[in-house]
Amino acid sequence: MTSPAAETPPIHLLVDADACPVREEAVKVALRHGIKVTFVSNSFFRIESDPLVEREIVPGNFDAADDRIVELVTSKAVVVTADILLAERCLKAEAAAVMSHTGKPFTHDSIGMAVATRSIMADLRAGGAQMGGPAPFSRQDRSRFLSALDLAIVRLKRHG
């Protein structure tokens, strides 16, 4: 018979690393908590060398990195992504937490509206509407991300 601890997967931080502005911050938080962090991308990038830090470069189509992240999701996974459709897939795969690189959480309650808004904006752009892009990434965004990630991991450690 196995113990309950053996059946529970460890906390794992998964980062959609292509164009992610908080890779260093994710490493910092993961190492502080002693958890594994896996960066998944379609292209090479430099990252800290540590046994808890893993980089997976996924060849193939545009969605290959997203598919790999969803494969890695467990009930103890914290996922960082700006991709709303990937966030939705991770929530459906029962990730413990999903957040953007600004620390904004994606939840089962909020993801439907985020997907709908994304679809409306895509339709408007396809129709020729001139839309502004997202606001530039700021120090406040970085700070919110650090706080949100730390809080998500602390909650998982306390409440499983």
Rank of each mutant, 00 (worst) to 15 (best):
M1A: 11
T2D: 10
T2W: 12
S3Y: 14
P4C: 09
A6W: 11
A6S: 14
P9T: 03
P9L: 10
P9A: 08
I11S: 01
I11P: 00
I11F: 03
L14V: 00
V15G: 00
D18Y: 05
A19F: 01
A19C: 14
P21G: 10
V22E: 02
E24I: 07
E25S: 07
V27I: 07
K28Y: 06
K28H: 08
V29A: 04
V29P: 05
V29T: 06
L31M: 14
L31F: 06
H33R: 09
G34A: 08
I35P: 06
V37Q: 07
V40Q: 03
V40D: 00
S41W: 10
S43D: 11
S43N: 15
F44Q: 09
F44G: 09
F44W: 10
F45H: 14
F45D: 15
D50W: 12
P51N: 09
V53L: 07
R55W: 14
I57M: 11
I57A: 09
I57P: 12
V58Y: 07
N61Y: 10
A64Q: 04
A64T: 12
A64K: 02
A65E: 05
D66I: 02
R68Y: 03
R68L: 00
I69G: 02
V70N: 07
V70K: 02
L72N: 02
T74L: 04
S75G: 12
S75F: 09
K76R: 13
V80Q: 04
T81R: 05
T81C: 10
A82T: 05
D83S: 03
I84T: 14
I84N: 12
L85P: 13
L85D: 09
L91K: 06
K92I: 01
A95P: 04
A95L: 09
A95E: 04
A95H: 08
A95R: 03
A95I: 05
M99F: 09
M99V: 03
H101A: 15
T102H: 06
T102Y: 04
G103A: 00
K104P: 06
K104Y: 04
P105A: 10
P105Y: 08
H108N: 07
M113L: 13
V115L: 11
A116C: 07
A116S: 08
T117C: 07
T117K: 14
R118K: 13
R118D: 10
S119G: 15
I120H: 15
M121R: 15
M121I: 09
A122F: 12
A122T: 15
D123K: 08
R125Y: 11
R125F: 06
G127R: 15
A129P: 05
A129K: 15
M131T: 10
M131F: 13
M131W: 02
P134K: 07
A135H: 08
A135K: 12
D141C: 11
D141I: 05
R142F: 14
R142P: 12
F145W: 01
F145P: 01
S147F: 01
A148L: 06
L149N: 07
A152D: 11
A152R: 12
I153D: 00
V154Y: 06
R155G: 00
L156A: 00
R158M: 03
H159R: 13
G160E: 05
G160L: 13
